[in-house]
Simulated assay, not measured.
Amino acid sequence: MFVVTPDAGSSPELTLPHSADRPAVRPAETRPVQTLSAAGDLLRALAAPVRIAIVLELREHDRCVHELVETLGVAQPLISQHLRVLKAAGVVRGERHGREVIYRLVDEHLSHIVVDAVAHVEEGAGK
Rank of each mutant, 00 (worst) to 15 (best):
V115L: 10
R22H: 07
S11Q: 15
L68Q: 02
R31G: 01
T71P: 00
P27S: 12
I113K: 01
E13V: 04
R104N: 05
T5A: 07
P49Q: 12
V114Q: 01
L86I: 06
R26L: 15
A20Q: 12
E57C: 14
A45F: 10
A119R: 11
A38N: 08
E60K: 14
H82R: 15
L72I: 13
I52K: 00
V85P: 02
V50Q: 03
A53R: 05
E70A: 15
G90P: 10
E57D: 13
P12L: 07
H97I: 10
E95L: 11
H109Y: 11
H97Y: 14
E70M: 12
V3Y: 08
V3F: 09
A47V: 15
L78S: 07
E95D: 14
A53Y: 03
G98W: 01
L86H: 02
A48I: 06
S10M: 04
H112N: 05
V25F: 07
G73F: 10
A45P: 09
I54D: 03
L68M: 09
E70D: 14
L14Y: 00
P27L: 06
L78E: 10
V4C: 09
L46W: 15
A28V: 13
E29Y: 11
D116W: 01
P12D: 10
G124M: 07
E123M: 03
A8E: 13
H97F: 14
A53K: 05
L43D: 14
P27Y: 10
V69A: 02
A48P: 02
G9D: 15
V91Q: 02
V121K: 05
D107C: 07
R84Y: 12
S111C: 04
R44S: 05
S111F: 02
H61S: 09
P27R: 13
V69Q: 05
V115W: 00
K87P: 01
L105W: 03
E100Y: 04
A75M: 13
V33F: 09
S11M: 11
D62F: 00
E57V: 03
R26N: 15
D41R: 13
I113F: 08
L105D: 05
A48G: 10
P23H: 04
S11H: 11
I113G: 04
E67D: 14
V91Y: 01
V118N: 01
L58T: 00
H82E: 15
M1Y: 11
V3M: 12
A24V: 04
L42G: 09
A48H: 13
I113E: 06
V85H: 09
R84Q: 14
R93V: 03
G124I: 03
A28E: 15
E29C: 09
R31T: 04
I79K: 09
I113P: 00
L83P: 06
H112M: 04
S10Y: 02
K127T: 10
T71M: 09
D7W: 06
L46F: 12
R63L: 01
V4S: 12
A48W: 08
A28M: 14
A8L: 13
S11A: 14
G9K: 15
Q81R: 14
R93T: 08
P17S: 14
R84C: 12
S10I: 01
V25W: 10
I54A: 08
R26H: 15
C64G: 08
I54Q: 02
